[in-house]
Design a protein around this nucleic acid. Structure first.
Lengths: 123, 123
DNA sequence: TTATTATTACTAAATAATTAGTACAAAATC
DNA sequence: GATTTTGTACTAATTATTTAGTAATAATAA
């Protein structure tokens, strides 16, 4: 399942699906912020996501319960990779040093990261 | 200058402008990968970027030399913020701990990061 | 059992993004 | 000075994205 970037509207729906695990259209709609789109708008996007192979459904009578085919972890990984590739010359270190410059990183974060690296060096 | 997300094509051109500092259309085109778009396509996007207030130009005779009004640093920061906001619950720590899960870091990343952290421990 | 409600499938329409051609003007060349 | 080249501005056409209405159908309620 090769991930592609989700559009803004698609991402909004996926986030709800990831959170709920599975949902009917009305459940998705209920989670959306005001101003809520029309029921049929949500249904359209879910159908688009299904056509793209990112969502599937189970049928219960005449209704469908939708669920994601890609995990949030998987997609998040893809997005991070995209960012690192596009703006940090493919180097995670560049991203980390970007955070350091901006003082966005707590010292404990760095310590944790150092410990993690130490632990994984053996492999 | 409030940054907005750049579209794919816009980002491609901005990256070249950031790299060159300033450029004529032909310079931008020269930097693009094959298959290169038409000269006029590049000109169109530069005009769009200008209308959006992201690019400006200096006139030399009948030609324009274009330059960015937003720095790459500034935009990069915006993009990172967007990612952290959308997928890491607004926490940089969450992003760092994301890297500390198996499989999210390449071995070369591990080595680089180790060196980087070692060097910065002193501070 | 008819009317209402809920749901999906299809259609459509507006806007954004992508791509490039044509017209025109200025500059360079012959 | 006429012709070719170079560059911008305008226009246009295609595809993607966003949004939602309508038709059809099944389930539910009156």
């Amino acid at each position: 399942m090769e991930p592609r970037s989700l559009t803004r509207a698609e991402a909004e729906i996926m986030k709800i699906l990831w959170q709920l695990g599975k949902a009917f259209i009305k459940d998705i709609l209920a989670q959306m912020n005001d101003p809520k789109p029309a029921y049929t708008t949500v249904a359209t996007f879910v159908r688009i996501l299904e056509k793209k192979g990112i969502v599937a459904h189970t049928t219960y009578g005449n209704t469908h319960e939708y669920y994601p085919l890609i995990s949030e972890q998987e997609y998040r990984k893809y997005e991070v990779q995209q960012l690192v590739e596009n703006y940090f010359d493919n180097s995670v270190t560049n991203l980390v040093s970007f955070f350091m410059k901006d003082d966005n990183l707590k010292k404990s974060d760095l310590d944790d990261l150092a410990a993690f690296i130490e632990k994984n060096k053996s492999k």
